[in-house]
């Protein structure tokens, strides 16, 4: 058995060597995640090996907003959201459903946050050719929001999530 512990990033966890196949995500975890955590700019949650405290997967959440410009939505001009900024799974632990486990945790953490300070959506960005996987195949409740050059922004409605877990 490989025992894991889920915990918030702190100075006790072993960050390096973490390699998820994406240099930007590795670099964030290695250089910025703890700093951002301490500055209260984003929160990083990790799965660590229980015996060594080494990170094998992580996700990062932060507060953000969608600006409606000159228009309004439901009478307001900024929609409060939770940004699912980063998710990374170490190369040695891919295809073990750690990514799905972290998406489930992101939903629950976002719901907890929304009960204290209202936020309506959980926003993620995925590669453009992957949007059909998240929108059609996985039934995780993702809805399409916008395409960028090489990516798609998707969201999950936290109110729907809350209503279906009551």
């Amino acid at each position: 058995m490989t025992d894991l512990i889920f915990k918030e990033l702190d100075r006790d966890v072993i960050i390096e060597p973490f390699a998820c196949g994406d240099q930007v995500i590795n670099s964030f975890l290695n250089n910025l995640a703890l700093l951002n955590q301490e500055r209260k700019l984003s929160n990083t949650y990790t799965f660590c090996l229980k015996d060594s405290n080494k990170i094998i997967a992580f996700l990062t959440l932060s507060a953000s907003q969608l600006n409606t410009g000159d228009a309004r939505i439901f009478g307001i001009d900024k929609v409060p959201i939770v940004l699912f900024g980063r998710l990374g799974v170490d190369n040695n632990y891919k295809n073990k459903k750690l990514g799905i486990a972290l998406i489930k945790i992101a939903l629950e953490k976002s719901l907890e946050a929304s009960k204290i300070i209202a936020c309506r959506l959980l926003l993620v960005e995925t590669a453009l050719d992957m949007n059909s996987y998240y929108l059609e195949k996985t039934d995780m409740g993702f809805e399409w929001f916008r395409d960028r050059k090489n990516s798609s922004i998707l969201f999950i409605d936290l109110k729907k999530y809350e209503e279906s877990t009551l």
Binding site: D22, N67, A71, R86, N95, R148
Partner: peptide
Amino acid sequence: RISQENFFFDDSEEIILTEQEIQDLEKKL
């Protein structure tokens, strides 16, 4: 790519909704 299990949100630029996006989002919500 599916097996990569990585997400990265580029938040370097603010998201400003278009009129159409507002209508669509309102409908979805």
